[in-house]
Design a protein around this nucleic acid. Structure first.
Lengths: 355, 355
DNA sequence: TTGTACGCGTTATCAA
DNA sequence: TTGATAACGCGTACAA
């Protein structure tokens, strides 16, 4: 009898049963601590436990749940699907949101089990079981890349799904008005700060959200007849933002205003700007996308785009839950406003900003 | 026939079957896009789809997997268990680690499905199914609070589990040498920086890891006969760290060195220190626990404790996987060294630090 | 003290 | 074109 480690197929309780010469019922009761109630002989208990360890037997969860959860409350398996390459702050927000929404009164009779599913950028088509309802009952998709979006448009997901931060006409979406955000960022830099050499800092992979911001920013610059440079970082991390800006300045690139369309990049950019002896906001005004908790603790506090009082994650999760319960048939597209939160990094008038 | 929304019990395909007057097999094939292959009549297909939407029918994943995945490769359900109150950067590292370790050659015949399970601080005892192998085959426990640790010591988890960042004798653990970290932090502040008014900044809830650091720091201060003050923040967030330090200074508290045992708190503390006109490191030297990507981009770059080349998350995940496959019976306790990464925030000699 | 038989909800196969 | 039936792996009531 090979143990689990040497065997591709998952061992079942009946194989276990054969290997030890006891019935499956006996084994089951021992492994679930029911042996006292059932009155199993102490040395049988020991034999079973020892053999379980030796074989590396692990019960099949699907079978176990099927048998056990049947008459319990109604449960759903949901997934948070995210691309592994993007720093997954989003995922955190979603996990918290699931916890919070699930505890709402209206869902008290339901149980939600959350899976995390990761995939590689633009490789969604290589995943199996994403279109059919064969892995989970519902999902929130986030951080998808253009190829992935295309895959979902060319094909059809057959279960409730909410796309977060991107708009795909066929599906439920919760997005922010990214074009508007880009436009407003440009307005802040060009009008408020009177920048003449604005620069946009972007990651090397553009999602629908990030490219929308870039576009909004560029259009506004164009309209105002001001040239706008683009710096492409080699990834999504602080270090990538730092490297990109250092290189740009070293090459003599001009800059008196920076719009970072990804938060972590802005943190690195801040450092690069200061290291070049430039002062924020006097020499370079900075604004970025993604109002997270550290913005106001940067030095100087960094202007950003927030989401007012609405929590994007909670909106997405509640939408998914309602779709799961089957009330809404129609496709929902919620566009949340993107509100600029102006701080010192774009304050060139020297006025004290109200708290 | 009530739809899913009005019914506590989960609707099954046979109820669906009765409600529409078709066999379960027919319904199943339609909902799984097998109707072409099976030659189902077009209007039957339509009827089934319509009814499915009307009823809000969602298949039972456990049953589906049981039937479908049987002869596929061997799969395990694992969980990342984390307390909801703590900002879950740890969770992120774990998710990435699972992705990475699962793709290793030695696990190519296995499939891992990752669940996220959250619970409230010190309320582990109120969770169901955490001791028996009834929800997942294995788990990584992190961010547990003292009461939770006690619960796990008083009871027995019957499946493979790895505790991350805390030491519980009965179980596999991957920890860092927190006492040593606390001691070294004290050495940096007291010896290198010659601080005479060291302060420790702690969150309001102490885990085993955080209290170990505090203890190590305090002991070292005591041994050197220097008094050390403790500031307790009201939570784990930047804002909490900021508030706590502002309040301490406002009350006339002395401070010329700060050890923050939680990273986000340090970010807020930085801001508070600067806002009081104090200069880092000249007036206040700062060091913290948790080498994350933003440390080196703070102004000035912040000293911290890192984990050298070993990735704590990956160690934990690989340990769990190996236990799942049943090779190791013995309990493993891996203590990883905590390496100080000194940057400008503790550099009082004015020397240029090597990169 | 242990084994037998059944059913959980689904899908694949075969029969009609 | 559709329905009946068996089987997936497990837990439990009941029989032995």
């Amino acid at each position: 009898m090979p143990n689990q480690k040497d065997c591709n197929k998952k061992m079942t309780i009946s194989e276990f049963s054969r290997s030890i010469g006891l019935s499956a019922a006996t084994i089951s009761s021992v492994l679930n601590n029911q042996h006292k109630k059932r009155g199993i002989a102490p040395d049988t208990v020991e034999r079973v436990k020892t053999q379980a360890r030796k074989l590396g037997y692990r019960p099949n969860m699907a079978a176990k749940k099927l048998r056990t959860h049947s008459d319990k409350l109604c449960s759903f398996d949901i997934a948070i699907v995210t691309c592994i390459e993007v720093p997954i702050q989003f995922t955190l927000g979603l996990i918290h949101a699931v916890e919070k929404i699930a505890s709402m009164e209206k869902y008290k009779n339901y149980e939600f089990s959350t899976q995390i599913v990761t995939y590689h950028a633009n490789k969604m088509s290589e995943m199996t079981g994403m279109l059919d309802e064969s892995r989970f009952n519902g999902a929130i998709m986030t951080n998808t890349m253009p190829q992935d979006d295309k895959y979902f448009m060319d094909n059809e997901i057959s279960y409730p799904v909410v796309f977060l931060g991107r708009y795909l006409p066929k599906y439920n979406c919760v997005t922010v008005d990214v074009n508007m955000a880009g436009k407003m960022a440009a307005d802040v830099l060009l009008v408020n700060c009177r920048c003449t050499n604005p620069v946009v800092l972007v990651p090397n992979m553009l999602t629908q959200a990030t490219s929308g911001r870039l576009e909004g920013f560029q259009k506004e610059c164009e309209w105002r007849n001001i040239e706008c440079k683009i710096i492409e970082a080699k990834g999504f991390l602080e270090q990538d933002g730092y490297n990109a800006v250092m290189e740009y300045i070293a090459k003599g690139g001009k800059i008196d205003g920076l719009y970072s369309i990804f938060e972590t990049l802005a943190v690195g950019a801040y450092h690069a700007i200061k290291q070049n002896g430039l002062i924020i906001p006097k020499d370079v005004a900075v604004i970025e996308t993604g109002e997270t908790s550290i913005c106001q603790f940067m030095d100087p506090p960094m202007s950003s785009f927030g989401l007012s009082e609405v929590n994007m994650y909670e909106v997405a999760v509640e939408l998914l839950f309602d779709q799961l319960l089957g009330s809404n048939e129609r496709i929902v597209n919620r566009i949340l406003p993107s509100i600029p939160v102006l701080r010192e990094s774009t304050n060139r008038t020297g006025e004290t900003l109200k708290k």
